[in-house]
Design a binder for these strands. Structure first.
Lengths: 211, 211, 211, 211
DNA sequence: AATGAATGAGAATTCATTCAT
DNA sequence: TATGAATGAATTCTCATTCAT
């Protein structure tokens, strides 16, 4: 009555569909989504070459799910909770947001790199729910945090939450991309000093007198 | 007997090697480096498919030169001179640097898109002199500018030139990449308001009282 | 415990075997036998992909039955009875036979199109009882009709019933095939004038004086 | 200066393009155009799998040329010239036309069988000059012959040249197709008696008194 | 006996690279 | 040295058939 199960699934709980997504996700995390072939994925999953097409319309659909799952997994793997308005100090919180954003992008961006010029995949991604690319979910959360602090009076109302979020996310893109594009890149972790300086600049600006 | 010249070169000055780089550069500027085939390049250059291999080890070497040339060309095409320390106001200068950086990245980053996961090409790029990717030349110039202002006293000494440069370049990466990855992307030009807010945040920081 | 019935059969009378043939027959009538996949057939039948192999040796056997059934169905669907010897005029009868033959072939031949080069299927067809392809049943009936007229004296004994039947059926093949092979095909119905001329030629021959 | 030649061409005169068409033509003649794969053709030609695409847009274009060449070759291989109006007797000529048409169709139709439902190929064929399918060139020639005889008075003016041509070509389709579709078919050559009867029927019609 | 997912052998096509001329 | 056709491995996707449940 029930159909046959894939050899690779013996003993497991997953459906093969989920197994395929998980396999693709593992490859995406390891090597990025750009150069993967259907064969790579089938091998990683330990199944026959053609199965993919029993569960997905095409390679792009599977990869879109895999990327999505990868982003969700990275988000879920964050070990510290997002800073909350009104707790700690604003400086500590901003530093935490920056660390958080860097960790997220370091794990997520490489998977997305090289996807430009693959409109089919990008379109599939767009159809999936939730923020697609390198954690724009974080961008919103961060802006929300700033607005919440503004409501509580710890950040002046004239500051722009959007601008701050853009600056923080931008720094992440820059640092991660630099590493991706430059084979002889700076150390994987940005120097503590740079983080300090970034936070200071974001807090007090270029023109501020010493705090 | 002089060696044979390629048909496409008759009457010209360039060596075929330079002609190939120029042709590849034109394609890179138009369509990015990601999807190009050697045939595309040969057709653009008006030469035979195989010549490439008489002048370059492989496709990647040629593309590395082409990307390099593209970056240099974009840098040289800037129509306004870089702001100079001590002239205008610091705010106007920062705004100019931001505009400059955005223009540069808008022209350069798309050419690099999709190159991650092509280690051969990235390695070749790394061997070339000068800053490779999205205009880190600008990063240095900007940091130099800030330090010069600091020397002249218009920016306090405690501010971090490096941090500022990273923030500015990061914003560029973010804005351009967002456009590349999102099929339903924001308008090609960032809203004037966002630029204002970015400049204000960079100048006065999150915590500053209204200027 | 009675054997399990297919979901698609609940409440019906047919065996699943007959249900499959009927489904395949419907597809054959609609799209021809050439491009059908077993999945197409299973979907049309509303049953699982694999059932087919519980009732038939392979896809070809099922299609052979389906084609056979299709031919029989088209024959049975003729709305006018076959002309009978001694009734009407010979000319009217011949015209009716021609119309009949054309209708039959127009419905049957397309289903067979593209089957050459599929020896497995043709062999299966050959094993089935009754005339296989484009209605040779009609060929026999027509020849029988001519012989009956000859017995009644309305057609001279020297005329060849076989030759006439071959000519009539041949015209059908020609007209229908021409339509199938030519993307820019003639109108679906042969011009009335051509039918008139064909009948006249068949009745009086090339050399006959005006009737 | 000249590019490399295919290994399979060593010593020959042909271009590889012509060699490919010839190889495909041979396969078409032997097995029909329907089931051929690009690999079959490459193997027959003794060349690499991909060459085809250096000379033709796709498989269909090559096959269209091959079919075209096959038809031309069959036409050129006719060992007897077409009967001419005014020479011999009309009966002998008609018999010769029938023989000729049968020979042509016997060689040509099988190659075309199974091409229905391959619109891409049929479209390509339509773009080629000359009569495409199973020798409609012959249909025109035959009709022309009849009209010429009519002008010379050996065939009465009321006879329809078109109808006769359609009947003759139709018989060919019928006889050849019957053989293709029926694995246990009649002898490859139609019985002499049937030919006699066909000719007599075409000349004198069903109703004619004994000649 | 029915299910329907898994299998895996091919199909068409692309493209970096080679190499005789 | 330039030519550009030839090479052949790799890619995505299809589909008849099998088989554990």
């Amino acid at each position: 009555m029930a159909p046959r199960r894939a050899a690779a699934l013996r003993g497991g709980e997953q459906s093969l569909r989920e197994h395929l997504i998980a396999a693709a996700q593992a490859l995406v995390a390891r090597r990025g989504a750009a150069g993967l072939t259907v064969r790579d994925i089938a091998r990683e999953a330990g199944v026959a070459d053609g199965v993919l097409y029993n569960h997905f319309a095409d390679k792009e659909e599977l990869l879109a799910y895999a990327l999505h799952a990868h982003v969700r997994a990275v988000e879920a793997a964050q070990d510290t909770p997002a800073p909350r308005a009104g707790e700690q100090t604003v400086e500590a919180n901003l530093r935490a947001w920056l660390r958080r954003a860097l960790a997220l992008h370091a794990a997520v961006l490489p998977a997305f790199a090289g996807l430009t010029g693959q409109p089919k995949l990008l379109a599939r991604l767009g159809e999936l729910p939730g923020p697609p690319g390198g954690g724009p979910g974080l961008r919103t959360e961060l802006a929300d945090y700033v607005r919440a602090e503004q409501r509580q009076g710890r950040i002046p109302p004239r500051a722009s939450a959007e601008a701050l979020a853009t600056l923080v996310v931008g720094v992440c893109h820059d640092l991660v991309l630099g590493r991706l594009l430059d084979p002889a890149h700076p150390p994987p972790e940005p120097a503590a000093e740079l983080v300090d300086d970034l936070v200071a600049t974001l807090l007090h600006g270029l023109l501020a007198p010493p705090p």
